[in-house]
């Protein structure tokens, strides 16, 4: 009985850690610009697909990964420069549509360049799974959870200990004031998109050995990331992590104990329920709306 529970828990944590990374990407951009970036999932896709194709060209895995992350970072900056920045005054809904347009555009190009098939990527370390208390755990799970933890620690350090990180935080709190104290807010916005793209592409690379990768993998994963971010509370880094893990575990438990037919419905039901009692998500800021 317990081994079953453990198995579902590990499954939930693996996918939950991925959701958390995607949600963190949403949070970064949301904090800096109040935009919900529906192209977030495409960073994942770029990460996975570019890595696979670079491996195919004969590069070793680490080089391919770095190449893919750089490509995604470039994409993030381009998205901010050419799509978000020119539409500064636009309504939030308009910005959503712009990012959706960008996502479709990126997907359209990826489909031309890399084709429409699914691709597999080897596990980072061996295919022999590990047994823990009767549960079977894929070695890649440790990579996913470990890298996610390292990235989170890195982000915490970045935002609390470095000048640039503090500048981003300051800009998210009050743009005008930030500008007054000499922060280049344009740079900060670009940096937020870049970081978000890097996070997304790393997430895309580390889950690719588990989920495979293809030009349209970003649609559903990106959406789940948004759900996780909203569940945890938009703009809260801790919320993104809690939201991601909760979502992953709820999905795995429902699939294991109840029925996999309504696994996704259960996740969305939880969202509605949480928002019903906590209208700003699990850890969202309890701020008063400005008039």
């Amino acid at each position: 009985m317990f081994s079953e529970f453990l198995q579902y828990l590990f499954t939930g944590i693996t996918i939950g850690a991925t959701y958390a990374l995607i949600a963190l990407g949403f949070t970064l951009i949301y904090n800096a610009s109040h935009v919900i970036n529906f192209a977030q999932g495409e960073f994942l896709m770029i990460g996975g697909m570019a890595t696979v194709s670079l491996i195919g060209l004969g590069f070793p895995l680490p080089v391919a990964m770095v190449g893919a992350i750089l490509l995604a970072a470039l994409m993030g900056i381009a998205l901010q420069r050419f799509a978000i920045a020119p539409a500064k005054q636009a309504d939030p809904v308009t910005l959503i549509i712009i990012t959706i347009g960008a996502a479709i555009f990126i997907r359209g190009i990826a489909q031309l360049v890399w084709g429409r098939g699914y691709h597999s990527m080897p596990n980072f370390s061996g295919d022999v799974p590990v047994r823990i208390g009767g549960a079977v755990v894929n070695t890649q799970t440790f990579w996913v959870v470990g890298i996610a933890a390292v990235l989170v620690a890195g982000l915490v350090f970045f935002f609390t200990k470095t000048m640039i990180g503090k500048a981003i935080l300051a800009t998210s709190m009050n743009k005008v004031a930030a500008r007054l104290v000499g922060i280049k807010t344009d740079m900060v916005l670009m940096l937020a998109f870049l970081l978000s793209a890097v996070l997304g592409s790393i997430a895309g690379i580390i889950v690719a050995p588990i989920t495979f990768t293809s030009y349209d993998i970003g649609i559903m994963l990106g959406l789940k990331g948004f759900v996780a971010a909203a569940l945890g509370g938009l703009g809260s880094g801790m919320g993104a992590i809690v939201g991601g893990l909760t979502l992953g575990i709820v999905e795995a438990m429902t699939a294991g104990y109840i029925s996999s037919d309504y696994k996704d419905a259960a996740a969305f039901g939880v969202i509605i329920l949480v928002l019903f009692f906590m209208p700003r998500g699990l850890m969202g800021a309890r701020v008063v709306e400005r008039v």
Binding site: A83, P86, I97, G101, I104, G108, L112
Partner: peptide, 15 residues
């Protein structure tokens, strides 16, 4: 090229 063009048109119009 359909998908790429659709995305591009959507994006440019809104920008």
């Amino acid at each position: 090229y359909e998908m790429m063009m659709f995305g591009l048109i959507l994006m440019l119009t809104m920008i």
